[in-house]
C-alpha cells in the first residue's frame, strides 16, 4: 500500500522506511511539516504515519489542516509524548491511532494494516463472518459451523476485534486499548488468558480447528 511517512528524525524515518519497503509498501517520505502537508493534500495514500513534533509546521497542525481540507486518509500519529492529555489532543485533532515512541516495528506494521482502507461503515456492520464463524454484534451471539457458542463479554470483544481485522495481525496493546481501554501494560496476562479461553471455546473438541494464529512476539491473527 502507499504510505506517507512524515518523520523528521532521519534514523527513525530510515528504519521505518526500510522495514515498510521490505513488507512491499510504497513509501513517500516527508521530513518537515509543510512538506507533509503539501504531499498529503496533493497525492492519495492508503495510510499516513505522522510524527507529532515536526519542524516548520507541527504534526497536530498538519493533521488539522488535512481534516479541514477533507483529506480522510487514516492517520497514525507517532509521538514521544505519552501523557494522557497528549493522547487526547492527538485523537481530538483527527488521528485514527496513536503510537508512543519507542515502539516495536511489528506493532507499527500491525496498526497500519488495521487502519488501511478501513471502510467507514465497518463499525456499523453488525454481522461478520470469517470462515465458518459468524458473529452478530447486535445480538452478542457467535456461531461456529451453525452451532452457537456462548462467550463471556470480554471473549466476545476479543473475537469481534479479530474478526473485523481477519487476516491481519492484532497486537497485545491493540487488544488492551480497544477491548479494555487500557493505555498501560498490566503485568497480569489478561489478554492471553481471555484469548486462550476464547480459543478453547471456539475449538471445542477438535484441537486442529483453531481459527486464531499466534505470531510469537508480535500478536494474533484470525485466519481469513
Amino acid at each position: 500500500m502507499r504510505v506517507l511517512l512524515a518523520e523528521d528524525d532521519a534514523d527513525t524515518a530510515g528504519f521505518i522506511d526500510r522495514a515498510l519497503r521490505e513488507l512491499g509498501h510504497v513509501v513517500t517520505h516527508a521530513a518537515t511539516g509543510d512538506e507533509a502537508l503539501r504531499l498529503g493534500n496533493a497525492e492519495t495514500f492508503d495510510v499516513i504515519v505522522l510524527d507529532r513534533m515536526m519542524p516548520v509546521i507541527d504534526g497536530i497542525e498538519v493533521l488539522k489542516c488535512w481534516r479541514a481540507a477533507g483529506v480522510a486518509t487514516p492517520v497514525l500519529m507517532l509521538t514521544a509524548l505519552g501523557g494522557i492529555a497528549d493522547r487526547v489532543s492527538g485523537l481530538d485533532a483527527g488521528a485514527d491511532d496513536y503510537l508512543v515512541k519507542p515502539f516495536a516495528f511489528a506493532e507499527l506494521a500491525a496498526r497500519l494494516a488495521a487502519l488501511r482502507r478501513r471502510p467507514p461503515i465497518s463499525d456499523v456492520v453488525t454481522r461478520v463472518e470469517v470462515g465458518d464463524i459468524a458473529l452478530d454484534a447486535l445480538k452478542r451471539q457467535v456461531w461456529r459451523a451453525g452451532r452457537e457458542i456462548h462467550l463471556q463479554p470480554r471473549e466476545f470483544a476479543l473475537l469481534e476485534l479479530l474478526m473485523r481485522h481477519a487476516g491481519k495481525v492484532v497486537t497485545r496493546t491493540m487488544f488492551l486499548e480497544q477491548v479494555w481501554d487500557f493505555h498501560f501494560d498490566p503485568q497480569t496476562n489478561i489478554v492471553e488468558t481471555h484469548l486462550s479461553r476464547l480459543r478453547s471455546k471456539l475449538k471445542g473438541d477438535d484441537e486442529a480447528s483453531d481459527p486464531i494464529e499466534t505470531l510469537r512476539g508480535i500478536g494474533y491473527r484470525m485466519r481469513a
Binding site: I84, A85, P153, R154, W180, T188, I190, E192, T193, H194
Partner: peptide, 30 residues
C-alpha cells in the same frame, strides 16, 4: 495534577466489576 482537568464521573461499581471479570480468569490460571 494536570489530569484533574479531564476528570469526569466514574461509575466505580461498573469499573470494579469489570476489572474483576477481566482478572479472575488470569488469577485462577496462576
Amino acid at each position: 495534577g494536570a489530569v484533574k482537568r479531564t476528570f469526569a464521573r466514574v461509575d466505580m461499581t461498573d469499573l470494579v466489576i469489570d476489572l474483576c471479570d477481566s482478572f479472575a480468569p488470569a488469577i485462577a490460571d496462576g
